[in-house]
């Protein structure tokens, strides 16, 4: 078992979520930054579908009853074991009853703490993810919470130390299903603006603020399925980048979709960060249907 001594601003359990239940209104959820979560698991030899901790702005302290291999991934920050700096992106052996502390990072938002064997509280609908939109899965962790640790499922990999991810200043997107709700001016506004991340951002979505992006129409869109990374444009003209806990369907046009890597990077944006959206043509040279005259390769 491990004990959460201090959860920091927000500590959640996450895994790969609940794919396959969208038809009954259950979002996928799962780790917000899938790449960093997968990396943490690999460093301690876990399967990719194991559960780990996802924190916001560090502040986490935990202890283990038994010696336990751990790995912390996410933005560069100070990580200590019993007060000794150990760093991120490597496996470390946590001795019994000493604190592992993840400090608040100077940049970035979410850390992942994987323990060898994974965390194994009871799953809900096949997943241990906390879905903040739907209220499914374990409650956000509180000081004193005890979490069971599973048995190792594979060999311990060679000890490596990897670099933390670079800070994010731009996100890459491809055209979305409702790209045609923007004319050339609107598209240029979307990809030509330096956006600021709103304080009203969370696992459901990152809200961007800036000069409103004009839409060609104020028509209503019948609800349609959403994906993680969808760039939705409500009538306010302020884009929303949907995250892991996005609703299953939405009624505002999705004009663009972040690449999976950029969807991960968006999960590391914090309020006040500035970010640009850059267009990446489609898989076969940008053959996506856009209306004639639109700047299909606008940058």
């Amino acid at each position: 078992m491990i004990t959460v001594v201090r959860p920091g601003p927000l500590a959640l359990l996450q895994d790969l979520g609940r794919p396959g239940l969208a038809a009954i209104g259950v979002p996928t959820s799962g780790a917000a930054d899938r790449g960093q979560a997968a990396l943490a698991h690999r460093l301690v030899g876990n399967r990719p579908d194991a559960a780990l901790l996802e924190t916001v702005l560090g502040g986490l302290e935990l202890r283990s009853d038994d010696p336990l291999w751990c790995a912390v991934t996410g933005p560069a920050t100070a990580v200590t074991v019993d007060g000794r700096p150990v760093g991120t992106h490597r496996r470390v052996l946590l001795p019994p009853d000493v604190p592992l502390v993840v400090a608040a990072p100077p940049r970035g938002l979410r850390h992942y703490v994987a323990v060898r064997g994974g965390l194994v509280p009871p799953p809900v609908l096949g997943s241990r993810s906390t879905d903040l939109l739907s209220g499914l899965g374990p409650a956000p962790l509180r000081a004193g919470d005890r979490l069971p640790v599973g048995d190792p499922t594979g060999p311990l990999p060679p000890a490596v130390r990897l670099p933390p991810p670079a800070a994010v200043g731009e996100l890459w997107l491809t055209t979305g299903p409702r790209r045609d709700w923007l004319d050339g001016t609107g598209w240029s506004a979307l990809v030509g603006t330096t956006w600021e991340v709103s304080a009203e951002s969370n696992r459901v979505g990152v809200r961007l603020t800036g000069p409103p992006v004009p839409r060609r129409t104020d028509a209503e869109l019948p609800s349609e399925g959403l994906v993680r990374g969808a760039v939705q444009l409500p009538p306010s003209g302020q884009p929303v980048l949907f995250g892991a806990d996005h609703p299953v369907t939405g009624g505002y046009p999705v004009v663009a979709v972040l690449t999976p890597t950029s969807a991960d990077a968006a999960a590391q944006l914090r309020p006040g960060d500035r970010v640009r959206l850059r267009f990446r043509p489609g898989p076969a040279g940008g053959a996506h249907p856009v209306e004639p005259g639109a700047p299909a390769t606008a940058r």
């Binding site: 794919p19 396959g20 969208a22 038809a23 299903p177 019948p222 609800s223 349609e224 399925g225 959403l226 994906v227 299953v248 369907t249 898989p283 076969a284």
Partner: peptide, 20 residues
Amino acid sequence: VAEVVPGARTLLLRLRTGID
């Protein structure tokens, strides 16, 4: 296709392979 998400007049196909 990993998952189908029905909408009011759409079907979203979430893929387990790339779209190419």
